[in-house]
Write a protein that binds this DNA or RNA. Structure first.
Length: 213
DNA sequence: CGGAAGATCCACT
DNA sequence: GTGGATCTTCCGA
């Protein structure tokens, strides 16, 4: 599909595609968080994972599961699904359902482009901090951007608390894929290469992924 | 109604 | 490399 100029909002049609396609296309995009006091925090996305929905045992929408917790997964494409995990962490997803099956993309890591000071504070870090410590990992990303369940079900868009904008184009040779993290329980789905990352990014959480796309 | 497990992170060895 | 923190959610009994 046609991708907007860098800095332009990604339209709903961008997200209304198969999750793996969206996960790959989101690499390089800018995730913008507007705080209640008006400050803008910006990350360049460097790692994503696709969750396919009903057919994917690793997905919260596996077998058509629909609960209070994951209700946002069934909102139209381009909405946020934020969940609480392990008793202390949050993770941020973008809903990508082409046909209402609960597909989503987990935003796993980003590189700070603006608001670094504020993000350090949110993370409880003081310089020098590694780039990876700031927003490398889904829970770190959420903490850096002050994201919690209050943002669950909101729509990504300009003038919203969360927005996704087009970034600079990314060459295919810069993208690597591999199995998703922490889904060993998911049977054969655990091996599916639905994790996408930029090859050279230090923010990418380990273990490093293999194959180029 | 109780138990078990989770799309993680950090400190410690 | 390993284990503990910490709590919500879900499913089976």
């Amino acid at each position: 599909m046609k991708v907007p100029e860098p800095g332009r909002p990604l339209p709903a049609s961008f997200f209304a595609r198969p999750p793996a396609e969206v996960a790959r296309a989101l690499l390089g995009a800018r995730l913008v968080r507007r705080l209640p006091d008006g400050e803008r925090l910006v990350l360049r996305l460097v790692e994503t994972e696709a969750y396919l929905g009903a057919s994917d045992r690793a997905s919260h929408a596996w077998a058509g599961r629909r609960t209070v917790r994951n209700a946002s997964l069934y909102l139209p494409a381009g909405h946020a699904y934020v969940y609480f995990i392990y008793g202390l962490h949050y993770c941020l997803n973008v809903v990508t359902n082409p046909d209402g099956r609960g597909g989503a993309v987990l935003l796993r890591a980003g590189e700070a482009l603006a608001g670094t000071e504020r993000m350090l504070r949110h993370r409880g870090l003081t310089p020098p901090a590694t780039r990876r410590a700031l927003a490398g990992g889904p829970a770190r990303l959420c903490q850096a951007l002050a994201i919690d369940r209050a943002l669950d079900g909101t729509r990504f868009g300009p003038r919203q608390p969360l927005a996704l904008l087009a970034g600079e184009p990314v060459a295919a040779a810069e993208i690597v894929t591999g199995p998703r993290v922490g889904v060993d329980y998911a049977g054969e789905a655990a091996a599916w290469p639905l994790r996408f990352a930029l090859r050279t990014s230090p923010e990418v959480s380990l273990p490093r992924v293999e194959r180029t796309v």
